[in-house]
């Protein structure tokens, strides 16, 4: 172990019941404007499966996947989008020219033009909170513990355990982006 962290999030979609507390917490924590175009995370609503009364529906929380091989980092002409020392994909607002190439390249629709910063914005895994030893706002607020956050390089971390003990998948593996959000 060289002490380098690889932060990741494990999302258990079976636990999500679409309360959207994570989306509210994110907006409040990060000052994201109240607009249907501006959000750092979301909950996708799946199709209704079955016939009444035997029906079910799946909800899939989503956000920036903080990819190891992030397409947004590759295409940014001014290195405004970069991976920091913790592996968080972040935007340097001072360098962003709003060419929106990163929005085009992102396979997850995780980016938007912020009316607050007037640059492209996205989830930071709440880097400011993680730096203080806290969890991202969406993880902390989730009432059903759908989201688990931690260091994959630490074998004792909760995320490492969940991935060892469960089958998991990532979204759009065919893009080669190597996302760091895992779904169980």
């Amino acid at each position: 172990m060289n002490g380098k962290k690889r932060y990741a999030m494990v999302i258990d979609t079976h636990k999500c019941f679409d309360c959207k507390a994570c989306t509210i917490a994110c907006k409040m924590e990060n000052g994201v404007a109240d607009s249907d175009q501006e959000y750092r995370n979301w909950v996708d609503t799946g199709e209704i499966i079955g016939v009444f009364p035997n029906v079910s529906q799946k909800f899939t929380p989503g956000q920036c996947n903080h990819c190891t091989n992030a397409p947004c980092v590759k295409v940014c002409p001014t290195t405004a989008t970069y991976r920091d020392e913790n592996g968080f994909v972040r935007v340097d607002y001072e360098k962003c020219i709003v060419c929106k190439y990163c929005m085009i390249a992102c396979p997850y629709d995780a980016r938007f033009v912020s009316s607050t910063t007037h640059t492209v914005d996205k989830c930071t895994f709440c880097a400011h909170r993680v730096g203080r030893g806290e969890l991202p706002a969406c993880v902390e607020t989730c009432p059903s513990k759908t989201r688990t956050f931690g260091d994959l390089n630490d074998p004792k971390s909760e995320v490492s355990k969940l991935l060892r003990e469960n089958e998991y998948k990532v979204l759009k593996p065919e893009t080669g982006a190597e996302p760091n959000i895992f779904y169980i």
Partner: peptide
């Protein structure tokens, strides 16, 4: 572009040759 002048500055001082 929202900030065309930034493109000129940061393309020089902070280039991404992969892009």
């Amino acid at each position: 572009l929202e900030y065309p002048t930034r493109l000129i500055i940061y393309a020089i001082i902070s280039p991404n040759l992969q892009s």
